[in-house]
Design a binder for these strands. Structure first.
Lengths: 250, 250
DNA sequence: CGAATGTTTGAAGGTGATCAAATGGGGTGG
DNA sequence: CCACCCCATTTGATCACCTTCAAACATTCG
């Protein structure tokens, strides 16, 4: 599946699978950020593209690590399972974001990655990426930035889970999504949730019922409109205030 | 302070500050892991040693990033502060563990690092470390493992905060400490907590009162003995079961 | 149309937080 | 060495937030 086949694909555009880093709209956010054209092409040559259908697994806990993945189109969730079977979503990944960095230390994937919708990823064989590092210092430096950013991101999740109340967690979640959509050129106020309420609840350390109640409350307070998975953040500024933990007198 | 001065130090052994990676008992756990003697000496040459007194700050949020730090002696805590002032401890670092990796992405420290006791760190100027990467592939590979491990560690904190009950969180915390002391050649069952109950509570997303109650409960259940900060894990196996979330009928 | 899945809403209950007070240790100065 | 104070910790009582349980409702898909 790494090489695009010649037969027509029913749902996805074949030309997208052929396209390179240079032509990818995400290259400013993604691994090739800041590379010169020639270096970008070298990187391009080691990368394979791959489709992942909704609900399909990109990799599982325990799988041998061989590649990192960059989301090209679509969204993913990654989750850990603890010994007693309960699972915890540790992140939602959007286009331009890298998956699999937690596998480097043990050579084994430490979480499951599942597509939230029909998606495409760029598969980056890690050993070949390592070969490039010695030749392209910019690439190495940016790779370190990306891993560091992942550490920072997880720290904010820890902050969220460790000392925010339910409403604050949910507002922070929405504000975060908003910013990430905006960074990709989409509306910061109108978007679709790609994950179920259950996924959101799991991620935020809350139950599905609590998520539903938070949605209803924020709707009642006039901060957002919601219809199924379509969200409109009517008052993003107010949401940001809630997300910072300001007390509201009701 | 990077160079040991010639005057006698009142509390700490000067010879310790002179010592190199090769003579450091932590070099199997730390950055130089797996390096040949010659490479270890090259790494050694860029590293400065530094003392940090209890409650002193190694770096603060917003500080310009220039060095990573390896804990040589002692322990640290790192915490984030959210906009409204509440803080959240994201980790406790022991000897051989690396601090500051979250600063690489923005060139600015993203958390505060404070010594829990009189400590020593190895200061590793990052730009000079980067120069070594191109010459010592083993070093680069190990650095990636360390960053990846930090990502994995934070994921388990997310799991802990996201779906464990108070008792389970606290048991998991003790079991984790136990394993890390054991890895350093100390007793896995008898050790001293270097942090306050308040720090533990903050880290685990619980109040100080809850931590105190958990201690009392586990003591009553015969799993541990506690006297101030001295802990004896009387029944480590049972603690591990609690940490995995098994339901106990009381 | 019916079944399955996902979502909303309500009522009751539990876990851990909050508030309050007592206890204990460690450090300082006499 | 002791008295004192300060701070950390423990313990108890009450409360609030969120969970759990339950049922109705909506949506999707065969």
């Amino acid at each position: 599946m790494n090489q695009p086949s010649l037969c027509t694909a029913p749902l996805l555009d074949i030309s997208a699978l052929r396209s390179s880093c240079s032509s990818c709209s995400m290259h400013q956010l993604c691994l090739p950020m800041g590379l010169e054209e020639a270096d970008m092409q070298r990187l391009d040559r080691i990368i394979g593209r791959r489709r992942v259908r909704r609900d399909d697994t990109l990799y599982r806990i325990g799988d041998k690590f061989s590649s990192l993945y960059a989301v090209r189109v679509g969204q993913f969730k990654t989750y850990q399972a603890n010994p007693d079977g309960a699972q915890q979503i540790t992140g939602f990944q959007m286009s331009g974001e890298l998956l699999g960095m937690d596998a480097i230390s043990t050579d084994t994937h430490q979480c499951d990655a599942v597509a939230l919708e029909d998606s495409e990823v760029c598969e980056i064989p890690f050993s070949r990426l390592e070969e490039l590092f010695s030749d392209i210092p910019t690439l190495l430096r940016h790779f370190h930035r990306i891993m560091s950013k992942e550490i920072t991101r997880e720290q904010s999740v820890i902050l969220l889970l460790g000392n925010m109340r339910a409403e604050q967690r949910f507002a922070a979640f929405l504000v975060n999504l908003s910013a990430r959509y905006a960074a990709r050129g989409y509306s910061p106020t109108n978007f679709q949730l790609r994950m179920t309420r259950e996924d959101i609840g799991n991620y935020l350390g809350l139950t599905i019922e609590s998520i539903s109640r938070m949605l209803s409350k924020l709707k009642k307070d006039g901060m957002l409109k919601v219809s199924n998975r379509d969200i409109e953040l009517v008052d993003l500024a107010a949401l940001k205030i809630v997300a910072t933990g300001a007390e509201v007198c009701n």
